[in-house]
Design a protein around this nucleic acid. Structure first.
Lengths: 160, 160
DNA sequence: TCATAATGCTATGTCACATAACAGTCAATC
DNA sequence: GATTGACTGTTATGTGACATAGCATTATGA
């Protein structure tokens, strides 16, 4: 074993999950809550929240994306993106444009203010992440992100 | 046709956060949601949910723990543990006993059935974890758990 | 003794998220 | 070329986890 926990006496035979603390999912949840609280308070300064930020970033990173595509990408329901888009639109952060060949879909494009807001919000979150990950080396941070992505991303040969 | 998320090439020097995908917190959230769904459906077979399982495990791992101690350990509010304890108690999984020196405190002890339920529930979750982590080596799983714990646990070596 | 704090608890609010249904549009099949 | 099914954006509504505020009781300590 590479690393040992400095916790109670563990029987080597007991290498299976025997305690709450052994569950990766427990630490996942605690770490995610910890992160969400930090992100939440960081984004308060920009008067927004995590999900609207993710939606805006989806638009700035993929101009012309549709709301349904954002929902599939972020794993959220179409119904729930409606008030979020309404809020971002009211703040003048993106524009809707009818698709040329499919009148059902609206293509979403960031405005100049939307680009600026995305950069600003991302900086706030990045500052929080630096604090949250301060006790991890750069290599550990990269490894952590890689392992997390491997958990939730589908098997299919997606992006590199 | 849906837009393909053609990503711009990443310059390795450009190590700063520029995209949603670069944020560890984003992957944390997605992985945690993924886990929570799996744990939820796994525990459905035992007619329970993640938080009651964590509470029961707190009792079996630390017999005589109080409800306030469980709340501090799990990071939850005292008000919210009340219906959970009521449910576990109704299922005969633990007993309350008055503290000898402090009449405010109830000490919680697992029953035989509580011990059995804890083992059974933990096995269900462990089975889910094996599936969730199937693409990670044993060393990677250990490393992931270590890095996650380093994120949310306070600086002092504290158990919880 | 009086102020402060902790425990277990009730009542209630909030907020993210899911479900169900809708009209309009598209595409494929018969 | 009607029809069937699927997809889009949307409204309305339910739900479930979680937080807040306050209570009576008990403990602590200046």
């Amino acid at each position: 074993m590479p690393l040992e926990k400095t916790q109670p006496e563990r029987n080597p035979e007991d290498a299976k999950f025997g305690r709450l603390d052994d569950l990766v999912g427990y630490h996942l949840r605690r770490a995610s809550i910890f992160d969400l609280q930090g992100v939440g308070s960081a984004l308060e300064r920009a008067n927004t929240r995590p999900v609207p930020m993710s939606v805006l970033l989806s638009i700035t990173e993929t101009p012309g994306i549709s709301s349904a595509e954002i929902c599939r990408s972020l794993g959220m329901q179409r119904a729930n993106i409606v008030p979020i888009l309404a809020e971002l639109e009211e703040r003048g952060l993106f524009l809707r444009e009818a698709d040329e060949s499919d009148q059902r879909v609206q293509r979403l494009f960031p405005t100049r203010r939307g680009e600026e807001a995305a950069t600003e919000w991302l900086a706030l979150v990045a500052e929080h992440e630096r604090s949250m990950l301060r006790r991890l080396t750069a290599a550990e941070q990269t490894e952590l992100r890689r392992l997390l992505a491997k958990i939730w991303q589908e098997d299919g040969p997606k992006q590199g």
